[in-house]
Amino acid sequence: MEFLKLYLDHMVLGTLGFMSFIMLAFAVERYIYFWRIKLVDFKHIELLKVALTRNLTTISSVGANAPYVGLLGTVLGILITFHEMGQGNKLDVNSIMLGLAMALKATAAGLLVAIPAILFYNGLMRKVDVLVSRWTALQDGFA
């Protein structure tokens, strides 16, 4: 329990920071790729879709799972707070509230990672749809 008390914040916030870094790196990579893509280089629509959706699963997975990582940190933080309450002879309301407030920061951090990830994912998926439509128009001779 002492290990969790000392390192819980570092583990949860470190994991969320890593997830955020990966998500942001893939989102920037995809935007640059979409900006530079030449639709005429693709002869088949499925090959185009594979190229366009590369790394989008990772961005989506970060958006879907970051709140759970934050929630896990909150639950473990509350567990630590209750454990400390059970170990002590006195119930100090201030220390209990402080422990609970500090535990909730993990959930907030998870949401701060998830919301931009979902926004990036949705924006990138819209761009995929537009590029596929442009490719189809090119193939039909409407470009």
Rank of each mutant, 00 (worst) to 15 (best):
L4W: 07
L8A: 10
D9E: 12
G14H: 08
G14T: 01
L16S: 00
S20T: 10
S20I: 05
I22N: 10
M23G: 06
F26A: 00
A27G: 07
A27Q: 01
V28Q: 07
E29G: 03
R30Y: 03
Y31A: 09
R36N: 14
L39P: 02
L39H: 03
D41C: 10
D41W: 08
D41P: 07
F42D: 01
I45G: 13
I45E: 15
I45R: 15
I45M: 15
E46R: 13
L48T: 01
K49Y: 10
K49G: 00
K49T: 09
A51I: 08
T53W: 05
T53L: 12
T53R: 11
R54A: 11
N55A: 10
I59M: 08
I59A: 04
A64R: 11
A64G: 12
P67Y: 03
Y68T: 08
Y68V: 09
G70P: 00
V75C: 11
L76E: 02
I78Q: 09
L79R: 01
L79F: 10
H83D: 14
M85W: 05
G86D: 11
N89T: 14
K90Q: 14
D92C: 12
V93R: 11
G99I: 01
M102K: 15
A103F: 00
K105E: 13
A106Y: 02
A106W: 01
G110C: 04
G110D: 03
L112I: 07
V113Y: 04
A114Y: 03
A114R: 02
L119C: 12
R126Q: 12
K127N: 03
L131H: 08
V132G: 06
R134Y: 06
T136R: 15
T136V: 12
D140Y: 12
D140K: 15
G141V: 00
G141E: 09
F142N: 14
